[in-house]
Write a protein that binds this DNA or RNA. Structure first.
Length: 728
DNA sequence: AGCACGCCGACT
DNA sequence: GTCGGCGTGCTC
């Protein structure tokens, strides 16, 4: 006698589905969310497979849970991600299953309505309620009492009296349906043209008949200020008309009230927003709404990628190049790439939008894997800022100072016109390195392979990797010499000090992610800058993205050379993108802007390309330079992320992998020979670069390597981060 | 993720 | 002599 057996995948760090017996009378289908016994407790799991077999000694599935089944496409996405990231399948599943902890049972909301009966006794408070309710409209109890200006007990009294009757209310809508034809500003010619090209890729057929597009991925490359957002809103509008769902992915920090309002101006209502701040009940509502199809547009951070869409027709990845799309703990994945994969699995069109597309995406476009739609001009006839280099070799800057005379006079001119200047330096704190003048001792993090950064305001030395902080000592901890430590190099705090000394009567604001007072104060401060409430901003890369500063007309880059010499093969690309973004902040308001870039190597390809504005040339040169350096062209670089709770085991593994004895044919470990260690969330972690000559399956190689490798203590975990290449 | 099992420091 | 620290391993 054979009985049905269900293979259940459980959202834990397990790579295999467990087998359970299906009790008679419980109809199960693949994808169903069920409860199963696991050890001493009950857990949720998902039916991953069903088969017949003799399951006499198996434990039984306890029952189904009132959550929509996972669609085949979503299940395939889970499988795909687990394989691609080397994560256990269960961990990948966990991302798609984030069930709300509490209140799965929705309490029905209750509304009240006038019955037409007069109250047995009239009071002033009752009079107000009756007057409001006279129109016969159903209102929530609380809404009615608020509107009438009385307490809720008056309403309760009237219900008891029979003046009002209660009615069950439909559950509150998570998001009102967006109106694709809500009145809005007309698109410019170039915008309309770009929108048409993107709409043509939608796979859902137009309601009026006609041909559907073939989907796939399109890069929407538009310079800062070209109006990309309105363009992809238009595609979302068309998806709405065609009755398919849209997902707009954004980096978490860009997902602001400002953006949601902008959406509301286009569509009449705010979209359903999905990010880490959306909790409990609302989260579950959105999930359910997405699964039922009631929620048609979700704007969300990377985890929105795992929502159980019913009919997903469009995925937009805004700011495609953003590093925030990388998830770095647990399952390591790049949301942009997984969006491409999900788009393929769902047969949905994917739009990658950016002013500064990543190299991977550019190369994919050049090789014809992605389509490309370009918007090279700013919207409304505005000009891109003029960018000039300041050759620091020719400037006279005193020791310990960092502002060149040219930059200082530009700031003064800008402020004199009542406009703002932004000084950009991508270094938090006061000084990136502290050393003892007597013995030369350099202060280093005890956990990570990094220097400790001085934070003068906090009087501390801080590791920017793991957060380790110690008091800045008075005497050298090595040789004991008193008061002889010296701060080497600038951070934003130090620049602010210099700015305050140079412009004593100007209002200066320092903006960095460690802003004292936390995210709330930071937000307020960004608002102050946007409203023109300060003259000079000193900021880290935080100011390069998101917020719009209309009064800003001068951007000064203090040290454009930072990052050009790091060992990371992607350093040049990253620097170029960052500088392009930050200089692009200038002149986005009424007045034209300019940018001055302090550098010691104005002829460096990154700087030269920035000044000339010739991004195409830069990417061509960068591709060539990588080849000269023996690096693979794009798409064949991977970073291995190895982490371990045990420090010694982590170091041993790092060393072993760094000079891996026998990599398979076609694979090379690029080093470094000593993998730099960092402490992240209690785990020691290092990253190693690997290249392949051919498109070999790095993932299976690593699985093998780990299986053959030594057993280690301390819960070793591996992740991988590969340039997107062959998954289309 | 839980939860048990197991092997070393301070307590009624 | 035990209580309990959390490191390690297992859950169909």
């Amino acid at each position: 006698m054979t009985a049905p057996i269900a293979d259940i995948l459980i959202p834990l760090a397990l790579d295999q589905a467990y087998s359970y017996a299906v009790p008679p009378g419980l109809p199960l289908r693949e994808g169903d969310v069920v409860q199963v016994p696991l050890g001493p407790r009950e857990t949720v799991g998902v039916v991953w497979g069903l088969r017949d077999g003799a399951g006499s000694n198996l434990r039984r599935v306890s029952g189904r849970i009132g959550v929509e089944a996972l669609s085949p496409a979503l299940r395939r996405l889970v499988e795909w991600i687990a394989r691609y990231t080397l994560a256990p399948k269960g961990s990948a599943l966990a991302m798609a299953l984030r069930l709300p902890e509490e209140s799965r049972t929705e309490t029905a909301r209750i509304g009240v309505r006038a019955t037409g009966m007069p109250p047995s006794r009239m009071t002033p408070a009752r009079g107000k309620v009756v007057a409001v309710a006279a129109d016969g409209v159903v209102r929530g109890k609380r809404a009615l009492s608020l509107e009438a200006g009385v307490s809720a007990s008056v309403v309760d009294g009237l219900i008891d009296d029979g003046v009002l009757e209660t009615v069950a209310l439909a559950p509150e809508r998570v998001a009102e349906p967006p109106d694709p034809d809500h009145p809005h500003d007309a698109l410019s010619g170039p915008q309309a043209e770009a929108a048409r090209a993107l709409v043509a890729t939608l796979t859902a057929p137009p309601p009026s008949g006609g041909t559907a597009g073939e989907g796939g991925v399109t890069l929407l490359e538009g310079v800062t200020g070209s109006g990309k957002t309105e363009v992809y809103f238009e595609v979302v509008a068309e998806a709405l008309r065609r009755g398919v769902q849209s997902l707009v992915l954004m980096p978490e920090i860009a997902l602001t009230a400002q953006f949601l309002d902008r959406f509301a101006r286009r569509f009449g209502v705010r979209p359903a927003a999905w990010h880490s701040g959306v909790g409990g009940r609302r989260r579950e509502r959105i999930r359910a709404g997405v699964a039922s199809g009631e929620v048609q547009v979700v704007v969300g951070a990377r985890s929105a990628l795992f929502l159980p869409f019913r009919s997903l027709g469009l995925i937009v990845v805004d700011e495609e190049h953003e590093g925030a799309y990388k998830q770095d703990d647990g399952v390591c994945y790049h949301a942009r790439d997984m969006a491409v994969v999900r788009g393929k699995l769902e047969n949905a069109a994917v739009v990658l939008a950016s002013a500064t597309p990543s190299i991977e995406t550019r190369v994919n476009a050049e090789r014809g894997r992605y389509r490309r739609v370009a918007m090279p001009e700013r919207f409304g006839g505005r000009r891109l800022p003029e960018i000039r280099a300041i050759d620091m070799r020719a400037e006279k800057v005193p020791r310990g100072r960092y502002l060149s005379p040219s930059l200082v006079s530009a700031i003064a001119e800008t402020n004199a016109r009542g406009e703002q200047a932004l000084l950009f330096l991508n270094r938090r704190g006061y000084a990136p390195l502290t050393l003892c003048r007597a013995c030369g001792h350099r202060y280093q993090c005890p956990n990570c392979s990094t220097w400790l950064v001085e934070h003068r305001f906090r009087r501390a030395l801080v590791c920017h990797h793991c957060g380790h902080a110690e008091r800045r000592p008075e005497a050298c901890t090595e040789c004991g010499t008193f008061d002889n430590l010296t701060a080497c190099g600038p951070g934003v705090e130090r620049i602010a000090e210099e700015v305050a000394a140079t412009f004593p009567d100007k209002r200066v604001i320092v903006l960095s992610s460690d802003f004292p007072g936390g995210a709330e104060r930071l937000r307020a401060e960004l608002q102050t800058v946007a409203e023109g409430g300060c003259d000079i901003v000193v900021g880290t890369q935080l100011v390069a993205k998101g917020h719009n500063f209309p009064h800003l007309t001068l951007v000064g880059v203090l040290d454009a050379d930072i990052g050009l010499t790091s060992g990371d093969p992607r350093a040049a690309e990253r620097t170029f993108q960052l500088l392009q973004q930050v200089t692009g902040r200038a002149g986005r308001g009424e007045k034209p802007g300019r940018a001055l870039v302090q550098t010691y190597q104005p002829e460096h390809p990154v700087i030269a390309a920035l000044i000339s504005g010739d991004a195409e040339r830069f990417y061509a040169e960068e591709t060539a330079a990588r080849e000269v350096a023996g690096l693979p062209p794009f798409g064949r670089l991977a970073a291995l992320v190895i982490s371990c709770t045990d420090r010694e085991a982590a170091e041993a593994h790092g060393r072993a992998l760094a000079r891996v004895a026998e990599p398979p044919p076609g694979v090379m470990v690029l080093g470094p020979a000593e993998a730099p260690l960092a402490l992240v969330r209690g785990r020691y972690r290092f990253r190693l670069l690997v290249k392949t000559e051919r498109e070999i399956d790095i993932q299976s190689y690593l699985r093998d390597w780990l299986a053959r490798g030594p057993k280690v203590r301390g819960n070793l975990r591996v992740g991988i981060d590969v340039d997107p290449q062959s998954f289309l």
